[in-house]
Amino acid sequence: MNAPLTSGYNFAYLDEQTKRMIRRAILKAIAIPGYQVPFASREMPMPYGWGTGGVQVTAAVLGADDTLKVIDQGSDDTTNAVSIRKFFEKTAGVATTTVTSEATVIQTRHRIPETPLKEDQILVYQVPIPEPLRFLEPRETETRTMHALEEYGLMHVKLYEDIARHGHIATTYAYPVKVAGRYLMDPSPTPRFDNPKMHQSPALQLFGAGREKRIYAVPPYTDVVSLDFEDHPFEVNKFDKPCALCGAEGVYLDEVILDDRGGRMFVCSDTDHCETRRADGNRGEMSPDSSENRP
């Protein structure tokens, strides 16, 4: 991404005809929550599996007045988040931010921000395998039929077998959800910790899978229910300690190895959330003394 890309390309890279095609798919996806809409995914200048679906969805919904935030694993500063943010700075010239509450469009890989989203925000997920049933049934022809018939017994059997074998459901991310009481949906490989945030979210949630050529959506204020059983209710991942830098509890934490003698600390996966809390004076057990040292 060294060479300047801007000259000769349309606003946000894709031509208007392609954007219209993607918007039509998005509208259909919003109209049928959780349903995977096939779309003519384009080849993008970044590799498949690195967010081409999310990038196409973002390009299709982005306007000149938008403020874009891009996160990967909760962080604004991981390599791929930097690369995608730069891509839109270059090709669309839109304002970018790392502050969740300031963004109008947030493209994400594997996390939902800790700061609750609002009505005027769009969360765009990058999706590697859109089909929640794929690892139970590899054939698209089969899984499409299963969705059409709302035949989701296979997934319940899988979860039941988890319980029979391990005593509890052993799916920790990409935990299947049912959307608006109809379609089984893959929430993308977000940790199941984030699943409850999808339920009745005021923000529009769009999912783009470029390689698999599928778009799906959860409209604002839609029921998103994680599958479970009455005697084994859905639970989120829990952490024993708060964030070592900002002291936040009830957030998703990354484990950071400190040395080769078993030393480790747990810090917020959502870097913006952590920084905002520290700027507000919150401290964790391992935070540097002075706020000037904040990155």
């Binding site: 694993q73 791929n80 890989r109 920790t172 991310y173 977000t190 940790p191 199941r192 991942n237 934490l253």
Partner: peptide, 10 residues
């Protein structure tokens, strides 16, 4: 690409 949030869950 980083997968640490998923790996953390695992």
């Amino acid at each position: 690409l980083p997968h640490y949030v998923d790996f953390q869950a695992e």
